[in-house]
């Protein structure tokens, strides 16, 4: 169709939208990929020749340790969110509809409020003379304060605290769609509770689980301020490494390579999510 020429409004809108996304999303991301295969330059940030050295350096034991530690903390965070969030989402979907509106609202609040401020609020609880230690000392459970702040545990607590709603919301949406009739049918066909859970509930909620994992695992590797505020200098996330390379060490190609790694991880998770939904769609009809 040649409508474009006769519709100046349509043309203008499309140019604006495409222009913005190409300039500020596509081009910058290509730049990062490009940077990741260039060499470091102390003055101009980057220079030729092309090299894969940055990716090889990611495997350097020094950084590999940091990455694996970060991945470990992110994985533990994700598992904790899943263990807390799965039964939570199920229970939430079984509450009366009127209460659900309020309860879901209470889950969205964290999304709208400053996560740095909430990370800092955790500090008030976890500090050596913070509320948790004071409370435990007061009731005599412990004799001297526990070291909670600036530990791996503090980082994981912080990440779980910030990211739990992002696990719960997609899970809630799949549980909300789960029809009671299906569970009854499974029961009528002779399946026990466990069997119903494994063969009916788990497959039907799998897309929600994967969406939740996607929304928790990647941010858990990138949220550098959580590690900064709660973790001290030894519990770094991939985000801290990228930030240090870009803002302090000025080794852009290496930081860019680490960022490409995160993007690839995201792509893999997105693909798994799509696959699970498609499989479900085929089985369902």
């Amino acid at each position: 169709m040649t409508k474009g020429a006769r519709q100046p409004f349509r043309t203008a809108v499309l140019i604006l939208v495409w222009g913005w996304l190409l300039m500020l999303v596509l081009a910058p991301n290509l730049l990062v990929v490009g940077t990741s295969v260039l060499s470091r330059d102390p003055a101009e940030f980057i220079r030729l020749p092309f090299t894969l050295d940055n990716y090889i350096r990611l495997m350097d034991p020094l950084y590999l340790d940091v990455f694996l530690h970060s991945l470990y903390m992110a994985a533990v965070t994700t598992i904790c969110c899943l263990i807390i969030g799965y039964p939570f989402a199920w229970a939430l979907s079984r509450v009366s509809k009127r209460r659900q509106t309020l309860l879901v609202f209470l889950l969205i609040v964290p999304f709208w409020t400053n996560s740095l401020v909430r990370t800092y609020a955790l500090k008030l609880l976890l500090a050596t003379n913070g509320l948790i230690n004071n409370a435990l000392l007061a009731i005599g459970v412990i004799d001297e304060p526990l070291t909670l702040l600036y530990t791996e545990l503090a980082v994981i607590i912080g990440l779980v605290y910030l990211l739990l709603p992002f696990m719960i919301l997609p899970l809630y949406s799949v549980f909300d769609d789960l029809r009671d009739e299906l569970l009854l049918a499974s029961h009528d066909l002779g399946a026990g509770r466990w069997s119903t859970f494994v063969h009916v509930v788990v497959p039907l909620t799998l897309p929600g689980v994967l969406a939740g994992v996607l929304l928790v695992l990647l941010p858990a590797m990138g949220m550098f301020y959580v590690a900064d505020v709660l973790g001290g200098s030894r519990n770094l996330l991939v985000g801290n490494v990228i930030k240090n390379q870009f803002l302090d060490a000025r080794d852009w190609p290496f930081g860019a390579a680490a960022s490409v790694l995160l993007t690839v991880a995201m792509a893999v998770l997105l693909f798994a999510h799509r696959l699970s939904r498609r499989r479900l769609g085929e089985e369902g009809g």
């Binding site: 939208v17 495409w18 996304l21 300039m23 500020l24 999303v25 596509l26 081009a27 910058p28 991301n29 730049l31 990062v32 940077t35 940030f45 996607l214 929304l215 990647l218 941010p219 590797m221 990138g222 550098f224 985000g239 990228i242 930030k243 870009f246 852009w252 930081g255 860019a256 960022s259 995160l262 993007t263 995201m266 997105l270």
Partner: peptide
């Protein structure tokens, strides 16, 4: 277009941040 918007929403903020820094410089 849809895909790019989705990627912006899903990708870790830090990835977006350094890509924009690279562009601005």
């Amino acid at each position: 277009l849809n895909g790019m918007l989705f990627v912006v929403m899903m990708s870790p903020e830090i990835v977006l941040a350094i890509s924009l820094l690279a562009l601005f410089l």
